[in-house]
Design a protein around this nucleic acid. Structure first.
Lengths: 97, 97
DNA sequence: TGATTATATAAGCAAATCATTATATAGTTA
DNA sequence: TAACTATATAATGATTTGCTTATATAATCA
């Protein structure tokens, strides 16, 4: 249902995660560092996003990279384009923590 | 905050209400009839939408009409345009119940 | 004025939500 | 293999949410 997808966007942490993933694929530890929250918290939000089909995961060694999967959800893309870019603030993030 | 606005869209009842108001201004009793829920429930959802500035109210006699107020929120409009139209199903709604 | 209609507000409750802490799983490295 | 790192899952608890029932407010009508 459509409302369920918006419910996912209605949380500051998840909305920020999606805005980050709009810039590039990220591993869990990148998200943890940037969001300044616990690793389980990030993992649980990621699971919700994955269950809703909004993100994909791809293992790379011991890291798991998450990326946006919204090509079939144009309105989600529109929404994310209205969020101020986080590119600048993400510069310090090093992959493979 | 942006997430708070999406939180409002993340509820089936409210999302339907907004989709209805996209068609035209409606009084509370129209919403109650269409949504098949209680009048206080509708009033409380309307208050949230009003507090967030998504709808306006206008009294007309003993009725209060609510209308969309999203001219300054383009992404909300985009979202509502992706919701299947309710126009057909709203044909039987008589104003001023 | 008193009854009726439309709407709002308050109180209460079950269910959902978000975070935390503890633990499990899986890959890597020494 | 043992220790370490990255991530997931489980258990728990405080807070929020959505709805119901009861009551209040405001406009209309007889």
């Amino acid at each position: 249902m459509m409302a369920d997808q918006f419910k996912l966007l209605g949380d500051k942490t998840r909305l920020t995660m999606l805005a980050m993933l709009k810039e590039r694929a990220l591993c869990v530890c990148d998200l943890v560092e940037f969001l300044e929250t616990s690793q389980p918290n990030v993992s649980q939000h990621l699971r919700k996003l994955k269950d809703a089909g909004l993100v994909n995961e791809m293992r790379k060694g011991q890291w798991i990279y998450y990326s946006l999967n919204i090509d079939d959800k144009p309105y989600i893309g529109t929404i994310l384009n209205h969020i101020p870019s986080l590119k600048e603030k993400m510069i310090n993030l090093k992959n493979d923590c």
